[in-house]
């Protein structure tokens, strides 16, 4: 729903999305410093994008600052583009930071269950395995990096050797781990037709969702 509103070009939608983001940010109790840290790289990208748009878009020069090589249209276009991208990134950061992987996986299986052709259990298994491998491999990557450093490997400037000596041990260990997981699944008799136990959505969450949906429909008709 939020993505649908972000595709719109009217400023009123941008204001609605910004207010909603600020509200969600305060509700999530996400630390402001961490948000700034997460968006640090993107701020540079957005600034470069803004400069490109304002410097190279043809149009009228500013009356107050005629010596500035920027156009009015460029400033407007650059500002709107950066605003939209900033909102997209803000939503992505807040949502990622406050949702648990298990909740996401359960929601995913619940959403995919009514679709007859999709193997929702297999997709759920793959998602949970990918997340598990992700965290395990990050630990392994750190171990390999420290071992590499202990052998003074970090002094080597050759990028081929650096990638090879980082990626190859991680890959080998990960494949062995994957084989262990396969055998463990087989040994436990993994089946896709087992009954599914999903936790129910709390009443308070349902109420918030209905209020949010009502506000969205209201704004849609007002705009």
């Amino acid at each position: 729903m939020i993505t649908a509103t972000l595709i719109q070009t009217r400023i009123s939608w941008f204001i609605f999305d910004s207010i909603l983001l600020v509200g969600l940010f305060f509700l999530s109790r996400f630390p402001f410093k961490q948000l700034l840290r997460e968006l640090r790289f993107w701020t540079i990208f957005l600034f470069i994008l803004f400069l490109f748009q304002s410097l190279f878009t043809p149009g009228l020069r500013l009356h107050s600052f005629p010596w500035l090589p920027v156009s009015k249209e460029g400033l407007l276009l650059g500002g709107l583009t950066c605003w939209r991208l900033g909102l997209i990134l803000g939503y992505a950061v807040v949502f990622t930071a406050v949702t648990r992987p298990r909740e996401l996986r359960d929601a995913l299986i619940w959403i995919l269950k009514p679709i007859p052709t999709l193997p929702e259990r297999r997709i759920g298994l793959m998602v949970s395995l990918a997340l598990r491998f992700f965290s395990c491999t990050l630990d392994q990557a750190e171990e390999v990096r420290l071992a590499h450093r202990a052998r003074l490997g970090d002094r080597n400037r050759n990028p081929f050797r650096r990638i090879k000596f980082t990626a190859l041990p991680i890959l080998r260990r990960s494949i062995l781990q994957a084989e262990d997981v396969t055998l463990a699944l087989v040994a436990r008799g993994y089946r896709e037709d087992m009954p599914l136990k999903l936790s129910k959505i709390p009443f308070s969450h349902l109420t918030t969702l209905i209020i949010f949906l009502g506000a969205l429909i209201g704004v849609w008709f007002l705009v």
């Binding site: 297999r122 298994l125 395995l129 997340l131 491999t137 990557a141 980082t166 994957a178 087989v186």
Partner: peptide, 28 residues
Amino acid sequence: MPVEKLRMVVLASLMAGLMAVGAYIHVP
């Protein structure tokens, strides 16, 4: 599910996990 297929499911998940790890590893 056949073991070979289950193995490919696990390996595909592993590669997806590695792609995610790849996004975190920078070589300057």
